[in-house]
């Protein structure tokens, strides 16, 4: 925008001054710091806040007016939500509010652990196949093989081989998620290797390990982080599915999946047993996905907000 003003009298005959255009672009304000980043990316802020709230709920579950989530009370079976039992009680008289809050621990632990383990393993495999050409064919065909099995089925099969425990659930889902991450990392590495700054680094005498560490790895982290949030969300859903069909978390540990499984038979007469864990699962997955979408937009300038 220039501030030049043209005197209409100075214009040659037959020419008219163009009317002032309306301001369609808001003036750019430079926001700084963490708060500024969140204000610029409300999706990240909302998703992050929801997720933070759920993490706090999971950590402080024992102090949030809960009772022992496994305590049986045969006299108080299938009570509707009330002042005593906020979310009601299940067929064995256990307090659903307490069970749902403690169940958040399982879901979040599984989601975060799978996201971390699958990212680290996928990063390693993707780096190797992106850099070592002969290993690429072997590793990628193996990953193709794993990918041809639906992740849920693979996880069920792996769970069938082991005892039901949270650790085994994490392991089974991680194995199922690794191929997707390693494919992503491989493709990013292959495109980064062709970047002129990598060639320039080679010409500058930088050794291969340093090239990976300094030039390749930092530039793969942004897409990795976004992918990790999606993995976290899908791992939580997979965990719930496994627990629902009885192949996941053992029934002694409350998880949203097995609470729903236990309420399944009664859902037409006592819908609240299924409703509360399902609502928590949906909100958690939504929070993680919002965070992932927001991060994708924030970290990739090509996906920047459109008008």
């Amino acid at each position: 925008m220039t501030d030049t003003t043209v005197n209409p009298q100075a214009l040659p005959a037959g020419l008219v001054l163009a009317p002032q255009l309306p301001e369609i672009l808001r003036p750019v304000t430079i926001r700084r710091g963490f708060i500024g980043f969140l204000r610029g990316h409300p999706t990240v802020a909302i998703g992050g806040a929801l997720l933070l709230a759920l993490v706090l709920i999971a950590i402080f579950a024992p102090y949030l007016w809960t009772v022992d989530p496994t305590a049986l009370a045969p006299a108080k079976r299938t009570r509707a939500p009330s002042a005593d039992f906020w979310f009601g009680t299940d067929v064995l008289g256990r307090d659903i509010y307490s069970r749902v809050l403690f169940g958040a621990r399982v879901s979040l632990t599984v989601g975060l652990s799978v996201a971390i383990f699958a990212s680290v393993a996928g990063l390693a495999i993707g780096m190797v196949s992106g850099f070592i050409r002969w290993a690429d064919g072997i590793l990628m065909r193996f990953m193709d093989g794993l990918m041809s099995i639906p992740p849920i089925l693979l996880a069920i099969a792996l769970m069938a081989l082991t005892r039901g425990s949270v650790g085994n659930v994490i392991l089974a889902i991680t194995v199922a998620e690794i191929p997707r991450v390693s494919r992503l990392v491989r493709s990013v590495v292959l495109s980064l290797r062709e970047q002129p700054y990598v060639d320039a680094a080679v010409a500058c005498g930088t050794r291969t390990p340093m090239i990976i560490l300094r030039h390749i790895l930092p530039n793969t982290l942004a897409p990795m982080l976004v992918q990790a949030t999606y993995i976290c969300a899908s791992a939580m859903i997979t965990e719930a599915i496994l627990s629902f069909i009885g192949a996941g978390t053992p029934p002694t540990i409350p998880s949203w999946g097995n609470i729903m499984a236990e309420g399944r038979a009664l859902w037409q007469v006592k819908p609240y047993i299924v409703f509360f864990p399902a609502a928590f699962l949906s909100v958690t997955v939504l929070a993680v996905n919002l965070l992932g979408d927001g991060l994708r937009d924030a970290l990739d300038p090509r996906m920047a907000k459109r008008l």
């Binding site: 970047q195 002129p196 700054y197 320039a200 680094a201 300094r214 030039h215």
Partner: peptide, 9 residues
């Protein structure tokens, strides 16, 4: 290199 945008990390 040619491209001043991709030749610097």
């Amino acid at each position: 290199f040619q491209d001043p945008f991709s030749s610097l990390n």
